[in-house]
Design a protein around this nucleic acid. Structure first.
Lengths: 293, 293
DNA sequence: ATCGCTATTTGTCTGACTAAATAATCCACG
DNA sequence: CGTGGATTATTTAGTCAGACAAATAGCGAT
């Protein structure tokens, strides 16, 4: 009875753990880098959140479970570049010991990462980080992991480029296919956004709702799937913008123009309006990142 | 000694198993639907494939492992509509018993499905199928699961619509940013495609290579991520096209036009050429599905 | 150069216990 | 007598531990 069973054992808090051996080739024998992931408050922490059941809690509670935490910790370490593609993680026994979790919990975490294309495991070889182009970058969780540690400017630009491609086209389709309910939800979202402003969480949620509903109004499931990705991009980039400048610009006129075009059933007009909207958001974000313009 | 340990126990072959209880609400007490997934050769089957290590084997071997098989089986059942969103799967013990696998293997399968947004589990409530809009439709594996059981025409149309939005824009970007190596790979792919034709696996792979390289040449990681999805769409829709008509049309001239425009560095021309290419492919597919036009 | 061996690593199995969330119960109170 | 709220019971996923199986990269013998 010496070792208490079932206690969460404090998880990763405040531990310096080396989990990777970076043995890219056979001979990689010298010093182990000793990655430190004390930062960003990984681990339990979220426990109190459940009571409120607020905005973040709808992540499917995967992060509140221990395998979810491990997946997140490792996922952030991978996408932030602490582990390079091709690196091989320590074997399951060592890793689970270092993280002080059972092997099964660790394995479930690895399964999550593998499902998102971040790692690949095989017997004898071990579990290795896959090439970047195999990662499911547009997966909401992966996206969230990216934004936990200052994504590169290039990555942000790529995300905006994607929005710039998808959202105008989606707005055009939405202008042709939206139904009254969707139109009503867009209007409500914009009104909410107007009254609360983007400085509040409610305002940002309304912003996301608007963009989500536009995607949904295309009636295209594949396109709608991108809404969680684009929604995440909107969310995180809004945070970035807010961080530097306080009120970059009044976003409402542009939003209303998109709405009016969709409501009027004018595809081309909707496309152009959305193009302008996203373009301006890109400018703001760029300005917030590199204070040279 | 009676029960032999470690033997794979033949897996799911030829068993009629009911894994879901469809108890949407508390009182759903009557008959259990008894889903039958004998079909489509689930289970082992793939074992021989590893020897060849051919085209399909690069799926990260997740399907050759038992948790991968289970995930695939359940995944197909979910996306094909055998389980409706909101349905609750039987509890882990019953399910793993019915599938004749250990609970841990079953749990790892569930983790995979959860990572792709198909299910969501919580204590006491159980594991339930999530709403469609939470599914990672663009995940390569999910896409493959869709195409294992005749996806709806609507879904196919949506996929083409996505291609129609993304690929022309990508071609335009590629015309501006491609480097010589990428150009060379595109040329090689088209030559290969020309000599082998789309009737051969090699020709189809070359087709996919071409589209992949265009996406890659955008230099946009988020965009490039869609290549696995779009590549999968190309692959499966090619199969569909091939099934009905034999040689729907010579696709090469359209492909070369795209290539020439990208090589010449003309974005608008590349966009238009790609638009035509995807548009024609859509027509062919539509003709192959409903033989009424 | 080829074949077979071996060591290492993931994969699978078993069974037990923990924790969370819901349903049922019971008791105090109006 | 009924009603609301706290308490207990039950059900389910979550976690743990340790053992054994299967696959395979790398090495040594042939």
């Amino acid at each position: 009875m010496g070792a208490p069973r079932g206690v969460p054992k404090s998880l990763v808090v405040g531990q310096t753990v080396s989990l990777v051996s970076r043995c890219v080739e056979i001979g990689g024998s010298d010093a182990v880098p000793a990655v430190d992931w004390t930062g960003s408050g990984a681990g339990v922490a979220k426990k109190k959140d459940r009571a409120g059941d607020g905005e973040l809690a709808r992540d499917g509670l995967s992060t509140s479970r221990i395998h979810g935490s491990i997946a997140r910790t490792l996922g952030v370490a991978i996408v932030s570049g602490q582990y390079a593609p091709g690196d091989i993680l320590n074997n399951e026994i060592d890793s689970s010991e270092q993280l002080q979790v059972s092997r099964s919990a660790y394995r479930e975490a690895i399964r999550i990462l593998a499902a998102k294309g971040l790692v690949e495991s095989r017997p004898k070889t071990g579990t290795r980080v896959t090439e970047r182009h195999r990662w499911s970058l547009l997966d909401p969780e992966v996206l969230a992991w990216f934004f936990e540690s200052e994504p590169s400017e290039e990555f942000l630009k790529g995300l905006y480029e994607l929005r710039m491609i998808v959202e105008p086209a989606a707005a055009a389709l939405a202008a042709e296919r939206r139904d009254d309910g969707q139109l009503e939800r867009m209007r409500k979202a914009l009104i909410q956004m107007e009254s609360r402003t983007l400085a509040t969480e409610a305002g940002q949620a309304a912003d996301r709702d608007f963009h989500d509903t536009v995607l949904e109004a295309t009636g295209n499931a594949a396109l709608f799937t991108l809404s969680s990705s684009i929604g995440a991009a909107v969310r995180w980039t809004t945070i970035f913008k807010q961080r530097k400048r306080e009120l970059p610009r009044d976003p409402m006129p542009d939003h209303w123009k998109v709405f009016d075009a969709i409501a009027a059933g004018r595809p081309d007009q909707a496309r152009e309006a959305m193009e302008r909207l996203v373009g301006l958001a890109l400018e703001d974000t760029r300005a917030a990142i590199e204070p040279k313009g």
